[in-house]
């Protein structure tokens, strides 16, 4: 239990060198357009993203690939679903960086090679890494969503800009949203 928790903290830490901090997923444009001007707008936007946005799809596929469903096929599903070239490049870069890191951390893990060859998305790499580290699925999903949210809040703090305390308040409030969407994501139906 303690080991799994420590590993989850490591996998979701901002210090994990996969470059998450360099992306704002459109927040920068929204700020420039004047659409995203305050804390309420940020919180509303992120609430909607968590309940209906593409990070929700990431989560649903994370659950499947964690459980051993064909990661290459679901990875292809994510590629076919990505809305723009920029979002696709971001997701693939984060997946590639995470797999490279695990090549060093887990040199005996044979699964990495086929994932690397498939242009792996961040969510798929994360799910397999969490599985490798024996982190329970729901906790891994919670960690993934928290990490994504935390990163978006950091981007909002810089771009809007917001004070650090306001940012932490948004993150605290969104905790309930994350907890709320987890059962829904775990049981979501995606069928071919």
């Amino acid at each position: 239990m303690q080991t799994a928790l420590l590993r989850l903290l490591q996998l979701t830490s901002p210090s994990l060198p996969i470059g998450a901090y360099s992306y704002s997923e459109g927040l920068e444009t929204l700020c420039e357009q004047g659409v995203m001007g305050d804390r309420a707008a940020l919180q509303s936007w992120l609430t909607h993203e968590l309940t209906a946005g593409s990070v929700r799809l990431d989560g649903a596929i994370l659950c499947r690939t964690y459980q051993g469903q064909d990661p290459i096929a679901w990875n292809q599903w994510l590629t076919a679903s990505r809305e723009s070239a920029e979002l696709l490049a971001q997701s693939l870069q984060m997946g590639r960086s995470l797999l490279r890191l695990f090549q060093a951390l887990e040199p005996d893990w044979e699964e990495i090679e086929p994932l690397m060859a498939a242009d792996c998305h961040g969510a798929v790499a994360f799910s397999r890494a969490a599985w490798r580290w024996n982190i329970p699925l729901e906790e891994a999903l919670l960690g993934y969503l928290h990490s994504w949210t935390s990163n978006m809040v950091s981007a909002g703090i810089k771009l809007i800009p917001l004070g650090q305390t306001a940012g932490q308040q948004v993150l605290l409030d969104l905790g309930a949203v994350i907890e709320g969407v987890i059962p829904n994501i775990c049981s979501s139906k995606i069928t071919n």
Binding site: A52, Q76, W77, A80, S81, N192
Partner: peptide
Amino acid sequence: GRPLWIDRSC
């Protein structure tokens, strides 16, 4: 048997 474009919204 491979998806090239999946656009699902509700």
